[in-house]
């Protein structure tokens, strides 16, 4: 397709999209989903990479989120010096697949980091994520020093009005929030919203000033992730966020993805409740996030697609 034709086609589709939403979908090529993309996709019963592939496909394909030449950040949970079996960190295979997809979609570069709790080099190595990212052609970058972080304001924050966020994320065009589903001693659950704590430098401030509110506040940062991808292949059902042994985990073989961060956390808590009891009301940051209009806990108002492989 020549450039001019492409522009013409694009304009035509754009105009029609304004008026006839469904018609535009029908007019477009096969690569664009025929029906409107769901608000959330949950896939169960496969390997991490396989489930992610399917979920992304259902969400309209990676090309919908990553455009050619963009710089992408992937923010998994790499907080702990633990092997993948502990489910303390995001599954490396999942991260590997996501990096590959982003690069295939034409991303200029894919950067991965987390402000770790244990020694960063040990976390990056033992989580398997460093190897997974590098094998896929992405860059895993350090986040161990304050000099990597720049002050950013959060106008909508209630308790947290400004904080220092990692430079790589500030520079990125798009980013993916890729947490692992975990029990958490402090915040009760650690899922997508809690995963934001790995993009900031000063975490003690959160703990000192109403943790549950600060977690919701940091999620109001204007640059939202294009997708929240919850890794629930193996979940840590108790003694989180570190876990004592593999026996603290359960194999759920699930992935939940959505741009709606409150909804994705709500759904993940529902999934979690099948293996360990957790009242969503004590995971206060989810309700706090809803109050700040970050999303909805009412999953029945959303178009949710559930797939079993």
């Amino acid at each position: 397709m020549k450039r001019r034709e492409f522009f013409k086609a694009s304009v035509a589709i754009g105009v029609s999209a304004l008026t006839f939403n469904k018609l535009s979908a029908a007019l477009s090529s096969n690569e664009i989903a025929v029906e409107a993309t769901p608000d959330m996709v949950a896939v169960m019963g496969g390997a991490p990479a396989e489930m992610l592939q399917r979920a992304l496909k259902e969400m309209g394909g990676i090309g919908k989120y990553v455009k050619k030449g963009q710089s992408v950040v992937i923010k998994p949970n790499i907080g702990w010096d633990k092997k993948p079996d502990f489910a303390a960190n995001t599954n490396p295979d999942l991260v590997n697949e996501l990096v590959k997809q982003c690069l295939r979609a034409g991303a200029k570069k894919v950067t991965v980091f987390d402000h770790t709790c244990d020694n960063w080099q040990k976390c990056y190595a033992n989580s398997g994520i460093k190897a997974a990212v590098e094998a896929a052609g992405g860059n895993i970058v350090p986040a161990n020093d304050e000099s990597y972080y720049k002050t950013t304001t959060l106008p909508q924050g209630v308790k947290l009005k400004s904080t220092k966020i990692h430079q790589a994320l500030l520079d990125a065009d798009v980013w993916f929030n890729v947490p692992v589903l975990k029990h958490h001693g402090g915040a009760n659950m650690s899922i997508a919203m809690k995963n934001y704590m790995g993009i900031v430098w000063d975490r003690p401030y959160f703990h000192n000033n109403d943790l549950q509110q600060c977690i919701a506040d940091i999620c109001t940062w204007q640059k939202k992730p294009v997708l929240n991808i919850v890794d629930a292949y193996r979940c840590m059902r108790k003694n989180g966020p570190q876990g004592r042994s593999v026996s603290d985990t359960s194999l759920l073989k699930a992935v939940i993805i959505s741009p709606n961060i409150v909804a994705v956390d709500t759904a993940a808590v529902g999934l979690f409740n099948q293996v360990e009891k957790m009242d969503i009301n004590v995971v206060e940051h989810i309700a706090n996030g809803e109050k700040l209009k970050l999303g909805t806990q009412k999953l029945d108002t959303l178009k949710v697609k559930r797939i079993k492989l």
Binding site: H184, G185, G186, N188, N208, D210, L211, P241
Partner: peptide, 10 residues
Amino acid sequence: NEHSCGACSE
């Protein structure tokens, strides 16, 4: 402050 924390346990 009567807020959650749990950083130490974490």
